[in-house]
């Protein structure tokens, strides 16, 4: 589904990603872990198309297309979804209105008919239930006045509405209490299918108790320095990131 090859990226001339290699296939869940400042959020930003980052080397192939060549909106329309670490509040723009616009722009891009009002309302009802999001929130301005947990649930709600091929969850667990974490993870698990894939970016192993990864990668200093199965996450939790850091000093 996505093939990241020797990806280098920098911001303001400072190199953050120093040669990332990663392949994610349909049906898989990958976790990317790493200490603060290792480049986790930069990776998600570069994949989603944030302009501040400059890709200096490497390539990303998404479903056969050159991802880096696409605008952020086209990446989304091709089926990439980023759940933000800090979802943005947009006063005055209703959640529903904006999602309808998003779905219809995606459909137009794929030469599909616009969503009917009935179909759309059915989707809203079904998908908001998935993350136990109050339907009143769906009608409010995007994230405005939402609690931290509501914002994250709203991210997963949007993900459900857009049914992406590849979802990147950027520190979705940050700021969540254990109940909200369970709800969010539940939503993600229910959306899992053999046709889509998920990249979970997280600092802590906690989330991975709920969203069980097939592969775990450790990002350190702009590179993936270790990969393994889900046990790697547990090992990391026990030994801490210093273990990785010291290993890398030795390298």
């Amino acid at each position: 589904m996505i093939k990241i090859n020797n990806l280098h990226a920098s911001i303001d001339g400072k190199e953050i990603l120093k040669g990332i290699n990663l392949e994610v296939k349909a049906g898989e869940v990958h976790a990317i872990m790493g200490p603060n400042g290792s480049g986790k959020s930069t990776l998600s930003s570069v994949l989603a198309g944030r302009e501040e980052f400059e890709v200096t080397e490497g390539s990303v192939e998404f479903d056969g297309k050159d991802l880096l060549d696409l605008s952020p909106e086209d990446r989304a329309r091709e089926g990439l979804f980023l759940a933000f670490q800090y979802p943005v509040e947009i006063p005055g723009v209703s959640n529903i209105n904006f999602l309808k616009t998003a779905i219809n722009e995606k459909r137009a891009y794929l030469n599909q008919e616009p969503v009917s009002a009935k179909e759309f309302l059915g989707m809203v009802k079904e998908k908001s239930a998935l993350v136990e999001l109050d339907s009143k929130l769906a009608n409010r301005s995007v994230n405005e006045g939402f609690s931290g947990g509501e914002k994250k649930r709203n991210e997963i709600f949007q993900m459900a509405m857009l049914s992406p091929k590849l979802s990147i969850l950027d520190e979705t667990d940050s700021g969540l209490d254990i109940d909200a974490l369970r709800i969010v993870a539940n939503g993600v698990n229910k959306l899992k299918s053999p046709n889509n894939a998920t990249i979970v970016i997280t600092h802590y192993q906690r989330l991975l108790d709920y969203i069980v990864p097939d592969f775990v990668h450790v990002l350190y200093n702009g590179k993936i320095v270790k990969s393994g199965g889900k046990e790697l996450a547990i090992e990391l939790e026990e030994k801490g990131y210093d273990w990785i850091k010291s290993e890398n000093v030795e390298l």
Binding site: A48, G49, R50, E51, S71, P72, E73, R75, A76, R77, F81, L82, F84, P87, V88, E89, I90, V93, F98, L99, T101, A102, I103, E105, K106, Y109, V142, Q158, L162
Partner: peptide, 12 residues
């Protein structure tokens, strides 16, 4: 906010 909306598939 513009980037957020774009990341959902809405043109700039």
């Amino acid at each position: 906010a513009i980037f957020y909306l774009q990341s959902r598939g809405i043109s700039k």
